[in-house]
């Protein structure tokens, strides 16, 4: 298995392994796409973004035009009769790291982008890429690679093992009635997945200076950053453009930049 953290290795900066979760539409993909590129600019370790949502979204924020970045079927072999283990796995000799180098889509700033696959051909069509996705998630070496996960909205995936690669979780929360109620549920569920000091809230689409305070008091989570509601950012997203390229000085981007520093500060 992967190495575990101990007092002796805290001297080396450990790459981030962070899952972004939250209510549908909270802003997870918008934040992750921008965050990953800013992290790649700020740090030498390579950045892998995992998109386990079969619906398109994150690719646009990253600045990619594709909406299908699943692992190529050719990278995957089917279990032979009588063999143990999962039905599909990476072909023999192809390590998780090789698979990322060879098959993950390269996004701007050198970010590697890997999707679970899309459902264009029905659920059966993502069987191979889905298995490869899970294998890469669990086998990629911990001492290299920042791994940032953008999970689909809701509580289903994050707390069913899909966030298992992560040692830190960011709950993205809007300070609306539904956002706050959802945030409280996420806080409760995430408590069983990561250590309390590795669980954070990010306020999304903040409209008042009071939002962070509301999120903290309603969810009990520590707010590590607030991203303001930002019209320029929203307009870029609406056009399908990466906000980081279209409006690099927008206020939301500046706050996502400070989120990169803040998380690196606490976690590495």
């Amino acid at each position: 298995m992967t190495s575990t953290s101990s007092a002796s290795d805290t001297a080396d900066a450990r790459p981030l392994r962070t899952a972004f979760v939250g209510k549908g539409g909270a802003g997870k993909s918008a934040i992750v796409g921008t965050f990953a590129r800013l992290l790649a600019r700020a740090d030498d370790e390579p950045v892998l973004v995992l998109d386990s949502d079969p619906m398109p979204g994150l690719a646009f924020t990253l600045g990619l035009e594709i909406d299908d970045a699943g692992i190529d079927d050719a990278a995957v072999v089917e279990r032979a009769e009588g063999e143990e283990g999962p039905r599909f796995r990476l072909r023999p000799g192809l390590s998780a790291e090789d698979a990322v180098e060879a098959y993950a889509t390269v996004a701007p700033d050198g970010v590697r982008f890997l999707q679970i696959g899309n459902l264009r051909g029905g659920v059966g069509s993502i069987m191979r890429s889905q298995h490869a996705f899970h294998q890469i998630k669990s086998e990629l070496p911990r001492n290299r690679w920042h791994v940032i996960g953008d999970l689909p909205g809701g509580t289903r995936q994050p707390f069913l093992g899909w966030a298992g690669f992560a040692d830190s979780v960011v709950v993205v929360i809007e300070a609306s009635a539904k956002g706050l109620l959802s945030g409280r549920r996420f806080a409760k569920l995430a408590g069983s997945v990561v250590e309390p000091d590795r669980l954070f809230a990010v306020v999304s689409k903040a409209r008042s200076s009071d939002d962070a305070q509301q999120v903290e008091s309603r969810t009990g989570l520590r707010v590590i950053e607030s991203i303001p509601w930002d019209d320029a950012f929203a307009d870029a997203e609406r056009e399908g453009l990466a906000p980081l390229d279209a409006v690099p000085d927008a206020p939301a981007i500046q706050q996502i930049q400070s989120l990169v520093h803040a998380l690196q500060g606490v976690l590495t």
Binding site: K23, G24, G153, G154, T155, R156, A177, K178, L181, S182, R185, F186
Partner: peptide, 18 residues
């Protein structure tokens, strides 16, 4: 929804939704 908020929109309130 696995994160059920419909009660809030219908107007039954936080407590009843929960």
């Amino acid at each position: 929804d696995t994160n059920p908020n419909l009660g809030l929109s219908l107007g039954v309130g936080f407590d009843e939704t929960e």
